[in-house]
Structures are given as C-alpha cells and as structure tokens.
Amino acid sequence: MRSVSEALTASRRAPLLSMLGVVTIAFSLFAFGLFGLVAINIRKALDQVEERVEVRAFVSDSTEIEAVVAAMKDVGEFPEVARVDYVSKEQALERARKEMGEFADVFEAGVLPASIEVYLRSGMRDPTTVKSVADRIRTYHFIDDVRYGEEWVEKLYRLRNIATVAGIALGVAFAAVAIIIIGATIRMTVLARAKEISIMRLVGATDMFIRLPFLIDGLVKGVLGGLLALVFVWVANRVVNEYFIETIFFNREMIFLGIVGGAFMGVLGSLVSVGRHLRRV
C-alpha cells in the first residue's frame, strides 16, 4: 500500500515527464500495433488467397487423355499437392461464360484449352514451393503453359514482410525512447528523494523495499501506455474500416500481450534507472 502511494507521489513530482513517458510507451506500442494489424490483415488475405492458389497447367489440344490421366496421377503424388482436377475444354468455356456475364457470347467452343488444376496443401503455398511445383509440371511435353499467379502472391508476401520489419523497427525505436524517458523520470525522483532514500538505507530498509515504489511507478505507466496505444490502434482500425477496406482487429490474447508489453517496458525502464541511480545516493 505504501509503495503504491509512494509511486504515485513520485509521478506527481514530475507530471510532465511522467505523461511523456506514458505517451512514448503508447507510441511504441501503437507502432507495433499498427503494423501488427497490417501484418495480421495481410496474413488473413493471404490465407484466403492461398486457399485458392492453384497451379493451372494448360494441356495442348492433341494430347491423349490417357497421358493426361497418367500425369495427373503423378502430380497427385507430389508431397505438396492436395488435389488435382481436370477441366475439359467444355467446362472451361462454361466457367468463362459464367464469369464474364454479358460478354459470354464472345467465347466459342474450342477457343479455351483444357487444363489440369493443382491445389496445394496448406503450408505449402508460399511462392517458392508454388514455383517448384509449377516447374515440375512444366516438364511434361504436352503442357503448353503453366500459370500460378506468381506476381501478386509474391507481392503480398513482400508487403507483409515489409510491414513486419517496419513495425518492429519503429516499435523498438519508440520502446527505446520510452525506456530512456521513464529512466529520466526515475532519475529525477531518485535525486529529489536522495535524502529520504539515504535515511531509509541507514535505518535498515531493504533494497527491494526502496525499489518497489519505482517499479510500481514504471508498471503503472506501462499499463497506461498500453491502454492508450490500444485506443490509438482501435481508432485507426475504425477509420480504415469506415473509409477503406474491411479489416480484422486483434483478438483478446493479442491485446493482453500488448498491455503486458507496455508493462514490461515501464518496469524495464524503472529497473535500469533505479539500479544505476540508487547506487549514487
């Protein structure tokens, strides 16, 4: 109880710096959170896209159906492959007409080639694996062409990587600043209370007893920063949802993790500073 009230006294002594500490923690977590949100949304998009990722191999017109069936059996045994379907010329035409709607009549029977569609197992849909499967299918002499939407799969992956790296870099930078600012607040408090602390030592207060208020101070600031960041990220997410695209938000575990992250930063900032400055009192 004493520690809590002491911790609050400490913050009251340097209100501006304390607020700055909370806000920088919030910024740090906001950076993590925002890019984290981008990352999980891209992840979700990729998951949806990946379910549809397929390698489509176009079969040349003169091919014997037996050769195609044999090839499909081979491909079906690739470890990456979940399912192989055959799409005849007629089915291809039917599908195209359905997708094109009013332009349906531009297609005539026989324009579209037959193809085999290869679906990959989940976890085997990254660009490298997809490409390696496509390359192997290409080796059949009766395959004219292989398509697998390589470009945008790679782009999405790259975007996600960039978002992750940018989020971590910015977040870490802000976290460092937050820890330094919290350290500075502690330093001021320790100096302002140097006499009190030295008396505490002389009469036999334990180190832990002396440190505890400072650690609680850091903890409170960290949790406040975490909550503030949560508000920031939530608002940003609402804005994107309202005006741009539909996105998903963090689940409960992620939110909890974010606040724990804030608490961790606060306590770390206090711990580093209090250890250093108490030695000088």
């Binding site: 006499k195 009190e196 030295s198 008396i199 030592r201 002389l202 009469v203 036999g204 207060a205 334990t206 180190d207």
Partner: peptide, 18 residues
C-alpha cells in the same frame, strides 16, 4: 546488512532529518 542496520543507531553531524 539491512537487518544489521535495524539493530544499529546512526547519528550524524547534520542530523539528516526530513
């Protein structure tokens, strides 16, 4: 050391009062 100091009384020239 903390426990020991609880059994010592320490007094200074400058009193060290709050």
């Amino acid at each position: 050391i903390s426990r020991l100091r609880r059994r010592l009384g320490i007094v200074f020239q400058d009193f060290r009062l709050l």
